[in-house]
Simulated scan of single mutants.
Amino acid sequence: MPKIHAATVADHRSRQRAALLDAARALLAEGDASKVTFAEVARRTGLARNSVYKYFPDRAHLLTEVVREAAPHWTERIRTALAAAGDSPEDRVAAHVTAQLEMVRDGEHRIARATADAQDAAALRAGAEAAHRALLDPLVGALAELGDDAPLMTARLLQGFVNAATTALESGADYAAVADRTVRLAVAALRGLAPLPRADR
């Protein structure tokens, strides 16, 4: 019986912690990290404010954990898009750019962006930057497989198109128009490099 009780308590704590992270994630997705307070997170989960301290010692730990848990989801979403793309470098780049812009459209980027702009920014920026680096990993791997001799540099430069597109979308630009132009620009930039070997060569 004690083991069953311990397991039940652990399961309850796991669900409560997940609920707190979901509440913080929802607040960040709304675009303002300053709204992520223990009082507001507790209110949204129906817990007492003091209960939040049982799971996270302070706000910085809560926010950092939101980003840490979100990053693998973002990376997997991009990997899935790349796996479904064609074998050519152009198809891979188009899939990578499109997947990221779809996440921007869905509000996912606001989590890292809002966290990076938070008052307690030093540790949080590190977490957000790590998440952004993780987003490049699938493209870096694809470019390396395709024969790029500086895949990280190429991926970072191509990411500049996505960053500019994100700014445009945040300013209210039309998603379809921005996404189409960004994909075409990124693909054109890739073609401007020394030719990468294609999969059928």
Rank of each mutant, 00 (worst) to 15 (best):
A128D: 08
D120L: 13
R59A: 05
A173S: 13
T64E: 14
L101D: 03
R110Q: 10
A173W: 06
A150P: 00
E170P: 00
A173T: 04
L152K: 13
Q100W: 06
A118M: 07
F56G: 10
H109S: 08
G147N: 10
A94K: 11
A60V: 14
H132A: 15
A95T: 02
L146E: 00
T167K: 08
L82I: 13
H132N: 12
D174Y: 07
L63F: 04
A168Y: 04
V104N: 09
E108P: 00
R105V: 00
A164E: 15
G172K: 08
D106N: 11
T64N: 13
V162D: 03
R110I: 02
L135C: 14
H109P: 00
V66I: 05
R79A: 10
Y175A: 11
Q100A: 00
A128W: 07
R92P: 02
R105I: 00
P57W: 03
A144M: 06
L82W: 03
A177T: 15
A130I: 04
L136P: 09
L169H: 03
A95C: 03
E108Y: 13
A123K: 07
A134P: 02
T115P: 01
D120W: 13
P89E: 09
L63C: 10
T75F: 01
S171Y: 04
V178R: 02
G172E: 06
Q100N: 14
R133M: 06
G147K: 13
Q119C: 03
R133D: 14
G127F: 09
A94P: 01
L101W: 05
T166K: 07
R77G: 15
V162A: 14
S88W: 08
L82G: 02
R59D: 06
S171T: 09
P138D: 12
Q119A: 13
A173V: 00
H109D: 12
A60I: 06
Y55D: 04
A126L: 15
V93K: 09
T154W: 05
